[in-house]
């Protein structure tokens, strides 16, 4: 019985991790600011869900607190601040300028995801834990894809430069 519960939690954990990766791909494909922000909120919700799942499973207060901080900051505060601070025309425009067009960005994102799997491969091999197995590569991929879209979005860089 305990085993079945643990298996279900590992399953749900893997599901949430997969959806986090999917949201990262979604962010690369969307052109509108509003859409990117929505994907960010969804992704952060899934990350928080991951923290709650693992925290619940291991009985760790730290992780539960981390989940709460994640919701407070990335689901509520950061989207709110961004919505207030970014100029209106950036929201109203249908397409944000990008250095690389969308299909190529998607392929790049895919390569980054594969690279992430290889990069954390040795680390993952050191832990027999299935949670590490599922989450670490996806976390790394999310980090790399995020860094990539920071570089590729031209409008945002221009806006930051003007500040």
């Amino acid at each position: 019985m305990v085993n079945a519960r643990a298996e279900l939690i590992y399953g749900l954990n893997a599901l949430a991790a997969g959806l986090v990766l999917l949201a990262a791909f979604g962010m690369v494909t969307t052109r509108q600011m509003q859409g990117v922000l929505r994907f960010l909120i969804v992704q952060s919700l899934f990350v928080a869900a991951l923290a709650f799942l693992i925290g619940f499973n291991r009985g760790s207060i730290d992780l539960l607190a981390l989940g709460c901080i994640m919701i407070a900051s990335k689901v509520i505060t950061i989207p709110w601040v961004l919505r207030r601070m970014l100029p209106r025309d950036l929201y109203e425009r249908r397409e944000i300028d990008q250095l690389v067009n969308i299909p190529s960005s998607l392929l790049l994102a895919l390569l980054l995801a594969i690279a992430a799997e290889f990069l954390v491969g040795p680390l993952v091999a050191a832990f027999p834990d299935p949670v590490v197995h599922a989450n670490l590569p996806i976390g790394m991929a999310g980090l790399l894809i995020g860094a990539y879209s920071l570089i590729a979005r031209r409008d945002l860089r221009r806006w930051f430069k003007e500040r």
């Binding site: 298996e7 279900l8 590992y10 399953g11 749900l12 893997a14 599901l15 991790a17 997969g18 959806l19 990766l21 999917l22 599922a134 996806i138």
Partner: peptide, 12 residues
């Protein structure tokens, strides 16, 4: 098993 059903591979 639920692990197979909920695995990221399956959902994607």
């Amino acid at each position: 098993s639920p692990t197979a059903f909920f695995s990221p591979a399956h959902i994607l």
